[in-house]
Design a protein around this nucleic acid. Sequence first.
RNA 1: AAGAGUAGGCGCAGCGGUUGCGGAACAGUUUUAGCUGCUGUUCUGAGGAAAGUCCGGACUCCCGAAAGACCAAACUUGCUGGGUAACGCCCAGUGCGGGCGACCGUGAGGAUAGUGCCACAGAAACAUACCGCCGAUGAAUGAGGAGCGAGGAGGAGCCAGUGCGGUGCGGGGGUGUCCCCCGUUGUAGCAACUGGCGUCGAGGAGUGAGGAGCGAGGUACAAAUUAAACCCUAACCCCUAACUCCUAACCCCUCUUAAAGGUAAGGGUGCAAAGGUGCGGUAAGAGCGCACCAGCAGCGUCGAGAGGCGCUGGCUCGGUAAACCCCAGUUGGGAGCAAGGUCGGAGGAACUAUGGUUGGUCUUUUACCAGUUCCGUUAUUGGAGAACCGCUAGAGGCGUCUGGUAACAGGCGUCCCAGAUAGAUAACCGCACUUCGCUAGCAACAUUGUUGUUAGGAAGCAACAGAACCCGGCUUAUGUCUUGCUCUUUCCC
Length: 119
Amino acid sequence: MFREGIRCHGSHLTLRALHKKAKPIVNNSKVEPENFELEVATKIGISISTKVSKRAVVRNRIKRQIRAAFRSLLPQISPGWLLVVIVKPSVVQAKCDYDQFLQELEQLLTEAEVIDGHS
RNA sequence: AAGAGUAGGCGCAGCGGUUGCGGAACAGUUUUAGCUGCUGUUCUGAGGAAAGUCCGGACUCCCGAAAGACCAAACUUGCUGGGUAACGCCCAGUGCGGGCGACCGUGAGGAUAGUGCCACAGAAACAUACCGCCGAUGAAUGAGGAGCGAGGAGGAGCCAGUGCGGUGCGGGGGUGUCCCCCGUUGUAGCAACUGGCGUCGAGGAGUGAGGAGCGAGGUACAAAUUAAACCCUAACCCCUAACUCCUAACCCCUCUUAAAGGUAAGGGUGCAAAGGUGCGGUAAGAGCGCACCAGCAGCGUCGAGAGGCGCUGGCUCGGUAAACCCCAGUUGGGAGCAAGGUCGGAGGAACUAUGGUUGGUCUUUUACCAGUUCCGUUAUUGGAGAACCGCUAGAGGCGUCUGGUAACAGGCGUCCCAGAUAGAUAACCGCACUUCGCUAGCAACAUUGUUGUUAGGAAGCAACAGAACCCGGCUUAUGUCUUGCUCUUUCCC
């Protein structure tokens, strides 16, 4: 997905996304066509390196806040996406809070057309 | 009251609610190969350091060995005693160092078992003399000073007369604030002459104690007188003892020159220089002697011991053991929960031909022959996994009692208190709370500011920091606060 996925850059976060619907032939033999949509779940990864902060407390807290933001956005995301969020070091200096993460994530997901901006 | 010291306590600025996440139990389910999934209810969910990963264990596997003894090796173990599963940890004590003190720090065996090393500098770094000091004793040779103590030696004029001149007094004269002449048993000199005395120690000057005598005045006692005693003042005479000045040799002191030699006080060098300080002593010095201190050895005594205290002795021994080493102690080696194990998708290997399967012989079935490794069997490898065990009941927590100074140990009671696996804690709200002193009101002081308070507003949900197999330590990081005890200084009673 790093090779083929989409990239979107925000001020503090980077999003990489890939829709898994592109190669449905693999699972054809085992799973019947009707159940296919349900089988492919959304997978989300959060990457935060020691460059952001050397203190584990800070990194974990940011991760939790992003995770909480995804939970609130989850109903809007259509299934079958692979998503990775990479946190940039500028987050610590800006001292972002939950609202900023939520806002920026929503913006990025809309840009990548993961969620429908209209709905 | 202020400033310190020490032993702790708490991780707290709280309480409640909603949504969401991890775990456990129970129930349900038209769930699944399977408590697998899903739903619901209840309970529960980070720390004192979870950190650093610096020590020590428990547990597991691999290698090696089999109890033990000896030897070797390793150890950043090293005051003593105790505690502990163990430790490089803890407790109690000893010595040393620091602090006025409460108290704090301490890697603190052996340098007298042996070997080595001690750069540069310095004379010398384990034995020496560069500068310096001395030159006593022995030998040689001068110069100066002082008479303290003892002893000895020395000292040279004095008196009378005559004479000389000065001066005083008396008389006379003159040119009268002066001069001359005569006289004089006045006086102080000079030392030519004469005489006497003196080196058998005369004589002079000064200081001054005691004794005896003579005697004037005063004091005390007494009615007065006399006598005696005592004290003070002045003068005179005699005797005894002592001192100073003047003096050669000897003696004494000081200095000079040179040498044999003595010395380790002082200087300088160095991280370090041969115990320290003082007094005596000496030619100068030196534990050479003495006192105190330090050190060493021996003995006694106290202590479980490290050591303490006392006495005695000889007389002083450099540093370095984180150089080798000696002594005592400890120790199978290695890897670590990603240890290791279970289930076992899958891989390759072997096996059987009794099965399946493929081919051949046969008209077909049966049967026979050959092949194959898809299935099968066996052991094996094994990080495929929404896997499982290890994995959280423990050298456990809390309370209490007993023993112990304490660390700690034991008994009893009670409680179950995270278990994730790219790794669960986040978001929001309410009431309190803290800060700001922004806005408004009130009050006080005081004057247009300060403080307090009420209401509103804003900011803040905390420092250090996140379990990852588990314990015991150590180290480091850290916020606001709080309790007990103790010390020093100042003030008051």
